[in-house]
Design a protein around this nucleic acid. Sequence first.
DNA 1: TGTACATCAGTGAACGCGCGTTCACTGATGTAC
DNA 2: TGTACATCAGTGAACGCGCGTTCACTGATGTAC
Lengths: 239, 239
Amino acid sequence: MADTGSSKGRRERLRAETTAEIKDVALALMASGGPDAITLRAIAREMGMTANAIYGYFATRDDLITTLINDVYTALADAVDSSWEATSDESPAARIHAWSRTFRNWALANPQGFRLIYGDPVAGYHSPEGGAAPDAARRVCTGLTALAAAAWPHAERLYEGSEFAWSDFDAGLLGKVRPAFPELPPAAVALALRIWGHLHGLVSLEVYGHLRTQTASPDKLFQEELAQLVRMLGLPQQR
Amino acid sequence: MADTGSSKGRRERLRAETTAEIKDVALALMASGGPDAITLRAIAREMGMTANAIYGYFATRDDLITTLINDVYTALADAVDSSWEATSDESPAARIHAWSRTFRNWALANPQGFRLIYGDPVAGYHSPEGGAAPDAARRVCTGLTALAAAAWPHAERLYEGSEFAWSDFDAGLLGKVRPAFPELPPAAVALALRIWGHLHGLVSLEVYGHLRTQTASPDKLFQEELAQLVRMLGLPQQR
DNA sequence: TGTACATCAGTGAACGCGCGTTCACTGATGTAC
DNA sequence: TGTACATCAGTGAACGCGCGTTCACTGATGTAC
């Protein structure tokens, strides 16, 4: 019998479960009350604990927030990545559509999560000194570069006189991107960031409520944006 | 002598000056510490007053915030509007460039102001029940529609099969826009909002620090975006 | 010109709130002989 | 199998903080006769 082993494992499991519950409760609070609703006391209240019990799991409030940001960002990266992989045998245009719709749908389903990772996170929060963007941020950017790479054969002509150089871009991003797409020029990374801008712009205007006051059909507008993007890139549309 | 008149006027003038100083101090606090730094006590401290003295000028903290949002939004609208008017005898492409650069430059010069009007404003702030967007918000959208209108003769072909209808857009916006551009179809308003998305996306990624971690040349990227936008619209480029 | 009154900007103390964090502790769970 | 000890999750009270807001007030400025 591995009884001693399993009892030690039990403590660890309980600990992991409580850690997960703290995060879940924090995310639920955020979903209903915005990032500022994430307070140790509110979490503890919700869990029927004392506020300081949380210090057994997270050294400090900022620690917890950092973990949450990573988790949420990872969820977004997982969503778009799996959408990319699920369309591996479709046309570039279709893949761009799928990736972008997944991006928007995730944001609309998790508006507070979107704010947490792309807006002001939480009042009084300071990210750790390193300040490095989470891995998931890089994954999203890598995914965008994959979109640009898929479109590049058709879109190349748009960047004929382009002045972009590798030195324009972050080394960490390039370290991921160049091995994966060895033939791409720097201008393709610029295209990836531009696409990011297009998507982020409409989605964040919508999440923050600025689009709803101007149009009743943000969905239609987003679809139009994608159609025109694909058209601008010169991709063959199959529909 | 209008002495009685002028002494009454003096009180009013002092009152107006103090009101202006409260707003100035609040904006300065926001510029250095973010929207959350706007607290009645901090303002009072900075002005050498007691916190509650501010209640003589603003009924409540939310009242003050509402006023600030309006002021900041108005400043942005003034900037882009005057840029538009200053280029009245230039080509549509040049005017789009000018308007967009003004938009971005204002945002980079007033990053906290940009956050105040386009992001989560202030922790705990609730906008008044009416919840109507400030006039300045509509002015910015009207300006964007002017861009779309200038480009429309060339861009029309992009929206040939378009399915947009007037009912897709907010009546208040249309009330401003349709008299000013009586010949524009609803698809042109969609184009205006799409352009907004493009600009807002890159600028907000930059203001919130997400672009800087990916590229050392956000400026170059924005210029490229504008060049491609103008190209996509089919506008003749003069350069 | 002088006096009595009204206005009103700002004071100072206090309220209750929720927060992050610290401290000394209790009591159940698991471990070693 | 039973007993002595170690671990450690969670308690409960307390700290100091800054906040928005209220209250009764003071004292200077302007007004009316």
